[in-house]
Amino acid sequence: MKKLMMSLAVVFFAVAATGQGYAPGDEARDFRLKNVDDGLVSLADYPDAKGFIVIFTTNHCPYAVAYEDRIIALDKKFKEMGYPVVAINPNDPEAYPADSFENMKVRAEEKGFTFPYLFDETQEVAKTYGATRTPHVYLVNKEAGKLIVRYIGAIDDNYQDASAVKEKYVAGAIASLEAGEPVYPKETKAIGCSIKWK
């Protein structure tokens, strides 16, 4: 019996880790989450946007911190082209006090975030999207009134050094959307901090 429980536990962990989540081509769900300015934000609030760079990120994760300036740069560059950044913190602040809503406000202020930084308190959005780590990007494109996931993964190929980046994945995916070509890349993997589930 104990062994069975153990196997079940192992299976449970495996499912919790991989989850279901979206694959490129799937229709994405909109959400309505609390922003650091205390307002509520959903993708439907942006009727003029062509799409969104949805980024699951946190305050505490060194990999996420390493990308903060690049996330701001992405927003500045692509908001004008119709693809604003929407950042979402899905982490459990009980486990990571640095990721509390109050600390999100502090970080957004300190870094001068130019984009909404939303708190996924119930973690439902992260689970629905299938985010496993931070930072984890979902490029969503509006197509015939639907939100379609077109790219999932990392921002670029070098978390350590922005100046040593060889391939900018998100920029590349948006460029192919803009050119009306098949989206490349569709999916990349990257090391990141695992999201702590409640």
């Binding site: 991989t18 780590r133 990392a154 190929d157």
Partner: peptide, 14 residues
């Protein structure tokens, strides 16, 4: 992205 898959196709990188 080049090597996570080579460790295991089941690894997302977390």
């Amino acid at each position: 992205n080049e090597w996570i898959e080579k460790v295991s196709p089941d690894w997302s990188g977390a």
